[in-house]
């Protein structure tokens, strides 16, 4: 029976179909885990602040996300009359899609992952660069002063932080000799997790990762004490929802990238000594990513927001020189060892 169905189409078509099904499953997994991160964040913040958090809807309050989603889907899609309609609609779509796209590069298990592009990391930089337009256009098209200030802040912040984010990851490229994320993970299995040789790169990358997702303490574009809600002050309904979920998709994406770039991807810790740990690659990827996702939340619970000029000077005067020195040092070591 199965053989007959299989012979209906050439094997190439089946391969393409299977790849598409995999891609859709990964996309759904990403969006669903981003949505439930909202619940996770509220519960963990509650835990750390000595209160309950949402615990009424369903088991442990897990249904809260479904209730919130239903509410936001049925909300009126209100657009203020003074906005620039085209860009106002475009901005949330950019926010969501530019955070979703880089996830296609992340190798999840040895045979799961959407794409294995040779220019993987550069593709991530390209999408991160284009993601700025979401906040910028959202802030400008809203035609209100809080939104515009939020948009301006975010643009300056993202441009500054992208510079050293790129340079910090170049150390990895020098060491592994490839932009391809799957090959970077395989390199780490052969040699060592890149967190050890690239520790300074990891420090700057972690800061930049928080900054590109606009999370506390780098959420100055939407600092509620100064700017109402920043660039999405005028948004409501599902358009606001896109910005909101897009932020969590960004967290999942950055956590996945951190796992793949610095922590060996799907490889189990001490897998060389305890080989049975390596039988569940997806579990290790999920655990590592979940750890970084939770540290995003812990960061929000623990740290206050810095002043804007402090944040900018930290980017240019501390992080940029540190990542440059890391790049030069890595290149020198690689040359010295004659790779």
């Amino acid at each position: 029976m199965i053989e007959q169905i299989y012979s209906l189409l050439p094997p190439v078509v089946w391969d393409i179909l299977w790849a598409m099904v995999k891609a859709v499953i990964i996309l759904l997994g990403l969006v669903i885990s981003a949505a439930w991160m909202i619940w996770l964040e509220r519960r963990l913040l509650g835990l750390w602040q000595d209160r309950y958090g949402p615990n009424r809807v369903g088991l442990w309050g897990l249904g809260q996300v479904i209730a919130d989603m239903l509410k936001i889907f049925f909300k009126e899609d209100w657009m203020p009359p003074f906005v620039d309609k085209f860009t106002f609609t475009l901005a949330p779509a950019i926010a969501m899609s530019m955070m979703l796209l880089p996830f296609c590069l992340i190798p999840i298990t040895p045979n799961w992952g959407v794409a294995s592009a040779d220019l993987g990391l550069l593709f991530f930089f390209a999408t991160a660069g284009l993601a700025v337009y979401a906040v910028m256009l959202g802030g400008w098209s809203s035609n209100s002063k809080y939104s515009l200030l939020g948009g301006l802040r975010s643009t300056a912040q993202t441009i500054s932080y992208e510079v050293f984010m790129g340079i910090s990851l170049m150390g990895i490229v020098v060491q592994t000799g490839t932009f391809n994320l799957r090959e970077i993970v395989l390199w780490q299995q052969e040699h060592v997790w890149l967190i050890f040789p690239q520790f300074f790169a990891f420090l700057t990358w972690a800061l930049a990762g928080v900054a590109v997702t606009h999370r506390t303490p780098f959420d100055l574009p939407e600092a509620e004490s100064e700017l109402a809600a920043g660039y999405h002050t005028e948004y409501s309904g599902m358009k606001f929802g896109m910005f909101f979920v897009g932020e969590y998709v960004g967290i999942v994406m950055v956590s996945g990238l951190t796992t793949a770039l610095f922590f060996g991807g799907w490889e189990a810790p001490f897998g060389d000594y305890l080989p049975f740990l390596n039988t569940v690659p997806f579990l290790w990827f999920a655990i590592k990513s979940l750890f970084f996702m939770s540290s995003f939340i812990l960061l929000r619970a623990a740290l206050p927001r810095p002043r804007y000029d402090h944040m900018m000077s930290a980017a240019w005067k501390v992080c940029l020189p540190m990542s440059l020195l890391n790049l030069i040092g890595t290149a020198a070591v690689v040359l010295w060892l004659g790779a």
Binding site: F125, A126, A128, G129, L130, V132, Y133, M136, L137, W140, L152, T155, A156, I159, E162
Partner: peptide, 10 residues
């Protein structure tokens, strides 16, 4: 697209 045009729009 990601850097120079961002400054233009800015």
């Amino acid at each position: 697209a990601g850097a120079i045009l961002v400054l233009f729009v800015f």
